[in-house]
Amino acid sequence: MAMTGVLRPGHAQVRVLDLEESVHFYRDVLGLVETGRDATGRVYFKCWDERDHSSYVIRQADSAGLDFFGWRVLDKATLDRLDADLQAYGIKTERIPAGEMLETGERVRFTLPSGHVMELYAEKTKVGNGIPLVNPAPWSKARDHGIAPIRLDHALLYGPNVAEVQKIFTEVLGFYLVERVLTPDGNGNAAIWLSCGQKVHDVAFAEYPEPGKLHHCSFLMESWDQVLRAGDIMSMNTVPVDIGPTRHGVTRGCTIYAWDPSGNRFETFFGGHLPYPDYETMTWTFDNFGQGLDYPQRKLHETFLTVVS
């Protein structure tokens, strides 16, 4: 597969209620690597196996939730082309100058009809994963610090106008629809899972009346065993757990949902099937959403539908 256009989820900026409590959580419990702090007080993290400077940024605020979600695109020409394509589609874009985020190039920012702020960028300093590029070891000791996911995998976002969001991702940004859950009347989509490569999803959206809500940011684990180990570490640190460990029917991924100290949900995720862009979309009826969410228990957990930040 020749990957062009949008390559992957790049960064999420999330609001927290108490910065130092959250730094402790993300660095020492989730096991992200702290890579910097900027003049505005934001703290930057990456997963141990990620090569770019940062993938998860927190800032202290008086509410929880997501400031924006950024996508790494192939190169500067792709950034300019997608900016023009978005504008031609009728979406207003804004340029954020290079350096506004540490070690990050110019960003193209726009707001989805769901109320979520998205960004595209082509440049972020490659700081590496601590492993040499010549004769690389399979892991470093950073893998054993805290839960230690290997990358920011995807996000699930809640807001209105999911059908319009789907069109923007599929018609402008080059994503394809991997799976969906139908609305109760079967005439629309209650939730959609979108991929820009061969991952089972890079972003998902669910229809929700309030705009711009964060359901969760998801972090990739290397194995089911590592998901169970994550659950052990959550309990050792009295992290509030929402759902799991279990396996989703949708995506087939293994999961635990839990909350950070400010009530931002996160996921430790492993697995999932590997779609291609020519595959037919898989569909779940609303009455089977319980299986889609939690395949063994077949339970549509109420918190999944109602608790967001």
């Binding site: 209620l17 108490d18 008086d62 509410s63 929880a64 939730g65 509030p240 909350w259 950070d260 100290p261 400010s262 009530g263 931002n264 949900r265 109420e302 918190t303 109602t306 608790v307 967001v308 930040s309």
Partner: peptide, 30 residues
């Protein structure tokens, strides 16, 4: 409805009618 337990989601709202208490940061959105 036990939600996020971190003051972020707003599902567990109460009104204290009487008594002394202390608080930690909670989302001003809620």
């Amino acid at each position: 409805p036990v939600g996020c337990r971190g003051g972020g989601c707003g599902v567990c709202k109460i009104e204290v009618l009487a008594g002394e208490f202390h608080t930690r940061a909670m989302s001003r959105e809620h």
